[in-house]
């Protein structure tokens, strides 16, 4: 199986460690992962902010960059959701018939990281050890967009020495919402305050999720409060092998 990593522009720029963690996990499971360098961005920010014509070329670029792979794996539930839900919409609105066809063929081969592990590779035990109290925040795109269900939790429960604690009001939105956090900064901050309070109440040392964007927002709030709670992408926890220093 030819596997490609779609790192996403956000992780590429701000969280390269998440990309390396995905490589670590997949390679530990015996797979080879490629990184097509023509890849950039799925267009989610432009699409969700109303700049559809600007997002359209990114759809074509994505389809070109990943056309030759059997599986495209991305450590972002929201970008996976964008590709699955909205690339066909943009292709229909702005693209040629051939682009529409390329998108239609590619979309079913795009997987969010935990989907790929549990549904395609059919593993939940990835040889990880992480001796910490961890809470999992199901981001909106994980929960209601991709319907990841308990896939991330199954993976976390299989991690050695990990103490999974419950996050109060876990299914409430953290208030990030991309440009929402800037356009509606006050409302976003109010939602963030409640989410951060939930994280603190959980007693977790580490908060993880399947999306770094929400984690940047929640982690930024936790950091400002000086809480000492760390945020980590789920992949980084799964990459932590037994005996290996993180």
């Amino acid at each position: 199986m030819r596997i490609a990593l779609f790192i996403t522009c956000f992780n590429d720029t701000l969280y390269p460690g998440t990309g390396r963690a995905v490589l670590t996990v997949l390679e530990r499971l015996g797979h080879t992962v490629d990184f097509p360098q023509e890849q950039t961005c799925c267009g989610q920010m432009h699409f969700n902010t109303g700049y559809r014509p600007e997002a359209a070329p990114l759809v074509a670029r994505f389809a070109r960059a990943f056309a030759d792979y059997d599986a495209v794996v991305t450590p972002s539930a929201s970008c996976a959701g964008m590709i699955r839900e909205n690339h066909p919409v943009l292709a229909e609105q702005y693209g040629s018939t051939s682009l529409q066809q390329q998108v239609a063929e590619l979309v079913p081969r795009v997987y969010e990281f935990t989907e790929f592990l549990t549904d395609v590779l059919k593993v939940t035990e990835v040889g990880a050890r992480f001796p910490h109290k961890v809470a999992y925040h199901p981001t909106c795109h994980s929960l209601r967009g991709l319907r990841l269900g308990d896939r991330p939790l199954r993976l976390l429960r299989a991690v050695k020495d990990l103490d999974l604690v419950e996050l109060p009001s876990a299914d409430s939105c953290c208030g990030f919402g991309g440009t929402f956090a800037v356009k509606n900064a006050d409302t976003s901050s109010a939602m963030l305050a409640d989410k951060a309070a939930g994280v603190l109440a959980s007693g977790a040392e580490v908060l993880c999720a399947a999306d770094n964007s929400c984690l940047m927002h929640i982690g930024g709030g936790l950091s400002r409060q000086g809480s000492g709670v760390r945020t980590m992408h789920l992949a980084e926890i799964l990459a932590g092998a037994e005996g290996e220093k993180r």
Partner: peptide, 23 residues
């Protein structure tokens, strides 16, 4: 324009190198 964001949140400093550079 980013004050609304940064009033309640810290932002991570970008890493020394991006993933694509590392790769």
């Amino acid at each position: 324009p980013l004050h609304g964001w940064s009033d309640t949140r810290d932002s991570p400093a970008p890493p020394a190198e991006s993933f694509r550079t590392w790769w």
